Amino acid sequence: MATVTNWIDHLNKPAEEVVGAVYPGAGSVEGILVIVGIILWVGWHVLTAKSESEELDRLARKRHSANDHKSNITDW
């Protein structure tokens, strides 16, 4: 965790003297959060694609006719 007591001195230092990030959690924590985020993102896409495919397959098996809309079928 960064402990900056004097921001003016800290900001006026040359880049070679500044060591580490100014905010907490930099480094391995960020990397872990990025990996977890990517896993959740890909997992969400896989689950969504699977559920949409199942729903489309279910609707395709019903084989609605051209006049089903006249019967007011709710699950069109």
Score class of each variant (00 low, 15 high):
residue 12 N to W: 06
residue 8 I to S: 07
residue 68 D to E: 05
residue 61 R to D: 12
residue 8 I to R: 07
residue 35 I to H: 05
residue 7 W to L: 07
residue 53 S to E: 14
residue 51 S to G: 14
residue 10 H to M: 07
residue 12 N to T: 10
residue 42 V to K: 10
residue 6 N to Q: 08
residue 56 L to Q: 15
residue 17 E to D: 06
residue 64 H to V: 12
residue 61 R to K: 15
residue 41 W to E: 09
residue 58 R to S: 15
residue 51 S to Y: 15
residue 62 K to G: 09
residue 12 N to Y: 08
residue 28 S to L: 02
residue 8 I to E: 04
residue 26 A to W: 10
residue 26 A to G: 07
residue 28 S to C: 02
residue 64 H to R: 11
residue 47 L to Y: 12
residue 22 V to H: 12
residue 71 S to F: 10
residue 19 V to I: 08
residue 1 M to C: 12
residue 56 L to G: 13
residue 14 P to H: 08
residue 5 T to L: 06
residue 2 A to Y: 13
residue 51 S to K: 15
residue 64 H to T: 13
residue 60 A to V: 12
residue 31 G to F: 01
residue 15 A to M: 05
residue 46 V to A: 14
residue 68 D to G: 02
residue 36 V to H: 04
residue 2 A to D: 13
residue 53 S to D: 13
residue 44 W to L: 10
residue 40 L to V: 09
residue 73 I to R: 01
residue 4 V to P: 01
residue 49 A to Q: 13
residue 30 E to S: 03
residue 24 P to M: 11
residue 50 K to Q: 15
residue 31 G to L: 00
residue 38 I to W: 06
residue 40 L to S: 09
residue 73 I to D: 01
residue 2 A to T: 11
residue 74 T to V: 09
residue 57 D to G: 13
residue 10 H to D: 03
residue 21 A to T: 06
residue 20 G to E: 02
residue 5 T to Y: 06
residue 20 G to Q: 08
residue 61 R to I: 11
residue 53 S to I: 11
residue 14 P to D: 03
residue 65 S to I: 15
residue 36 V to Q: 03
residue 34 V to Y: 06
residue 49 A to H: 14
residue 37 G to E: 05
residue 11 L to T: 07
residue 15 A to P: 00
residue 73 I to L: 01
residue 27 G to S: 01
residue 5 T to W: 07
residue 62 K to H: 12
residue 48 T to C: 14
residue 55 E to M: 10
residue 20 G to H: 08
residue 8 I to D: 04
residue 10 H to A: 03
residue 26 A to F: 10
residue 36 V to L: 04
residue 10 H to G: 06
residue 62 K to Q: 13
residue 17 E to C: 03
residue 42 V to E: 05
residue 30 E to M: 04
residue 62 K to W: 12
residue 8 I to W: 05
residue 22 V to P: 01
residue 50 K to G: 14
residue 18 V to T: 09
residue 14 P to L: 07
residue 73 I to G: 00
residue 36 V to R: 04
residue 24 P to R: 11
residue 15 A to T: 07
residue 17 E to M: 01
residue 48 T to Q: 15
residue 3 T to Q: 13
residue 54 E to F: 13
residue 55 E to K: 10
residue 16 E to T: 07
residue 18 V to I: 05
residue 65 S to M: 11
residue 38 I to T: 09
residue 73 I to P: 00
residue 23 Y to V: 07
residue 63 R to L: 12
residue 34 V to N: 05
residue 13 K to F: 02
residue 66 A to P: 04
residue 20 G to C: 08
residue 56 L to C: 15
residue 31 G to N: 00
residue 17 E to Y: 06
residue 69 H to F: 12
residue 28 S to T: 03
residue 58 R to Y: 13
residue 66 A to N: 09
residue 76 W to V: 05
residue 3 T to L: 11
residue 26 A to Y: 10
residue 55 E to I: 12
residue 33 L to G: 04
residue 7 W to T: 05
residue 71 S to Q: 10
residue 2 A to C: 14
residue 68 D to N: 04
residue 68 D to A: 02
residue 66 A to T: 15
residue 47 L to T: 11
residue 13 K to S: 03
residue 52 E to V: 12
residue 57 D to K: 15
residue 24 P to K: 11
residue 75 D to H: 08
residue 40 L to N: 08
residue 32 I to N: 00
residue 28 S to A: 04
residue 18 V to E: 00
residue 11 L to S: 03
residue 27 G to H: 02
residue 18 V to W: 01
residue 70 K to F: 08
residue 74 T to M: 02
residue 67 N to V: 12
